[in-house]
Write a protein that binds this DNA or RNA. Sequence first.
DNA 1: CAAAACTGAGTACGCCGTACTCGCTTTATC
DNA 2: GATAAAGCGAGTACGGCGTACTCAGTTTTG
Lengths: 248, 248
Amino acid sequence: MTGHENLWMRPERPARGPRPSFSRAALAEAAIRVADAEGLEAISMRRLAADLGAGTMSLYRYVTSKDEVFDLMVDTAVREYLPEDRRPPDDWVEGLRLLAWQARRTMLRHPWLAPLAAGRPQAGPNSARLMETALGMLDGLGLSVDEMLTLVGAVFAYVNGYIQSELAEAEALRRSGLTLAQRLAQHLSFIQSLIATGEYPMLERMTKEAGRQYMGADDRFAYGLDRLLDGVAAGLPRRGAEGPARSR
Amino acid sequence: MTGHENLWMRPERPARGPRPSFSRAALAEAAIRVADAEGLEAISMRRLAADLGAGTMSLYRYVTSKDEVFDLMVDTAVREYLPEDRRPPDDWVEGLRLLAWQARRTMLRHPWLAPLAAGRPQAGPNSARLMETALGMLDGLGLSVDEMLTLVGAVFAYVNGYIQSELAEAEALRRSGLTLAQRLAQHLSFIQSLIATGEYPMLERMTKEAGRQYMGADDRFAYGLDRLLDGVAAGLPRRGAEGPARSR
DNA sequence: CAAAACTGAGTACGCCGTACTCGCTTTATC
DNA sequence: GATAAAGCGAGTACGGCGTACTCAGTTTTG
């Protein structure tokens, strides 16, 4: 087994031959530019090649399939999860919370990222750096590495799931071409037709209470994240080396 | 606005004309059968039509786009989240936990469901029934409907995010054609190359601790779910009408 | 019975990912 | 530096996709 069947193990540049006219990084950058501007479905090998001024099939010198382009995009974007300054925050809860918020910021900035990242295992160098950072925050709590991975995985599962539903809502609104009010009205008329059967008392109450102010997307994200971190912290009675004095 | 631009408001059968040779339900069923057996990417309008013994374009009498086929599939499958007996569980935490486990069971049974559901707002009748059920569990806790929606949304965000990463791992393994051991070895050799730089102390520790037993996927799912529910419960000091006696 | 209107099959268009071929250019080796 | 090997980029082609459009036939309503 040479390991070359894996994108990240395969050397970008072979030993011999002319210098390539661009690089995997440039390919990832171009793909991200297209996806940011026109969405994931605008990405095609022909389009990327045209943007790079190369022949379509030339891209396959850098990558063995379109799927690997997606791998490159995800790992490139994941770098933005990491805060600029490397020094670890004093509190692991604060650290994970910060990471979660940075992840959300990044996924909202690149709406294609969350669906794409959810469908593939995080395997690239920046994902590894991210995991290293997260694990480092949990060092000294007396957890096994396996427990740490489970904990970090739970936080990212929530973050990913939340942001995907947040983005799906926004995307559906955009595609429908309706205003928010029109879309709510359409939704409401469907729900009304269900309520008419009398089997949906809670939804009925929902329509009656509507009109109050809604929680914003930020607040809803914070709610679940903070509850999850609360629960995790409560499940760790054993404190780190700094002693049990710190209550929160 | 007639409302007919929405799949769920549009009548399946128009007032006049010959009887259609199948139904939206049959279309959804056929699509689910194909996706279960051969994956989401095996679904095409031509393929579904062939399975139904119809012409390709005839499907557009039932649905305005392929996307609506996906809507039908999701809403049909979501019905499986709901437990068979309708009587509400005595405890809202138990109720939500059960719902989460049922959702996971369903999404593992239909591996195409989680990615698909994550990308579209839950809008069909079965999604409404699901939401009605979940909200009903939270009745009497003194929450506003908006708070209830946020709470339920957080739980489903976690469930969806977790299962997508669980499925992504399994899918990557399947596509690689490697055994689990081979894949771990490949992963390890990549991580080793990173460790060689000396900048990944936690990953280094991870490789050294490996070989111990891993937490299973069930346990990892339960961990995050239970921590989240713990945190939510702790954030609700006010108890329902049954009095504050019940501690858990 | 008449006529309105819905059905389903067929054809066609413009995309897509990618396998394959073939001169050309660059590089490593002697 | 000459030379041979090998990677490079462009072109062509194939099979598949979603779906717009047309048209003959059938079913239902009045």
